[in-house]
């Protein structure tokens, strides 16, 4: 859907993006991850044609991105707000018309959304009378109103309380289900992997990693498993029981655990699965749990950046 090709962008004194290439597939829910100041916002602004790259180009649906494509993109920037003195309905109409909708079209769709979100009583209210959460609902509506093929959110969860953030997340997932391509940035890497289909990691103006979440995790798995068990004598399992797998650690469960037992970390050879280990474990102890330790995005990020 969107392809960024060798994008570089310099501001006076520093480089915001250094040769970044990304492919955002149609229908994906794409997470752009990276610490503050990595260059995420600059990248999103380039996609929205707010600024131009120094070098490189962007393809939209396979052809060079053009001014008219803004009608197919919805953008909710990190620094987002509304005219405080303007009435809600009028303001939503204004923003919709700037996106190319006619007045009548915009009015119809707004009516639908206002009813759906149960905010139809707000039409004549001034924005300054609304709470922050209410204003954010309006911003969300105005971003999606022109039914864009691509939605771009810059730090959509920042500044939200957990419940509101969850609502936004649900709306994003619903739009994703409906086939909209969604690209969003966040500097909080936890809990993003389970909602994204694809991610890219940006650090210090460079792309360090990108691809589908499955691929990334698969390529970063260490084949380490966490196994909790209890032997009849409450002691450790004989080391040969794990053979030929490498035992990284084997300790008692902490005192606070609800049942006595031990916890072991073992590393399996790449081609082996958990099933190869279980028979010998079952012979020696009662297996309480066994699971693969899947690296979190945070871990992968730190590994990638440091390694």
């Amino acid at each position: 859907m969107i392809q960024a090709v060798h994008i570089s962008k310099h501001f006076s004194g520093h480089t915001a993006l250094n040769d970044v290439s990304l492919h955002i597939p149609k229908g994906s829910l794409y997470g752009l991850l990276g610490p503050n100041g990595a260059g995420k916002t600059t990248f999103l602004r380039i996609l929205n044609q707010i600024i131009e790259p120094d070098s490189g180009h962007v393809l939209f649906d396979g052809r060079p991105l053009q001014r008219k494509d803004i009608a197919h993109i919805g953008y909710l920037p990190e620094e987002r707000g509304l005219y405080k003195k303007m009435a809600v309905g009028e303001q939503a109409l204004y923003l919709a018309r700037l996106k190319g909708l006619t007045r009548a079209e915009a009015k119809n769709r707004l009516k639908y959304w206002f009813e759906k979100l149960e905010i139809d009583g707000w039409w004549d209210k001034r924005v300054e009378e609304l709470s922050k959460g209410m204003a954010q609902k309006i911003q969300f509506v105005t971003t999606v109103l022109h039914q864009p093929d691509v939605l771009i959110f810059d730090e959509p969860f920042s500044g939200f309380d957990p419940i509101a953030a969850q609502q936004i997340r649900n709306e994003m997932l619903a739009l994703h289900q409906a086939g909209t391509t969604i690209l969003f940035s966040t500097h909080r890497m936890e809990s993003v992997e389970e909602m994204c289909t694809h991610i890219a990691l940006i650090n210090q103006s460079r792309k360090v990693l990108d691809g589908s979440v499955g691929d990334i995790i698969r390529s970063h798995r260490t084949h380490t498993y966490r196994i909790t068990y209890r032997t009849s004598h409450d002691g450790p399992m004989p080391p040969e029981a794990f053979s030929p797998f490498v035992v990284l650690s084997d300790e008692s469960l902490p005192l606070g655990a609800w049942q006595p037992g031990r916890i072991a970390h073992v590393q399996l050879p790449k081609e082996a699965g958990l099933n190869a280990l279980l028979p010998s474990l079952i012979l020696n102890a009662e297996v309480l749990s066994a699971e693969e330790i899947v690296p979190s995005m945070n871990t992968i990020f730190i590994q990638t950046v440091q390694g």
């Binding site: 993109i73 953008y75 920037p77 620094e79 987002r80 707000g81 509304l82 005219y83 923003l95």
Partner: peptide, 18 residues
Amino acid sequence: IEEKTSRIVEVIISSVKP
């Protein structure tokens, strides 16, 4: 200044040129 302080300006310039 109003557009800048109310943070609406970036929303608008994603639709129109600055």
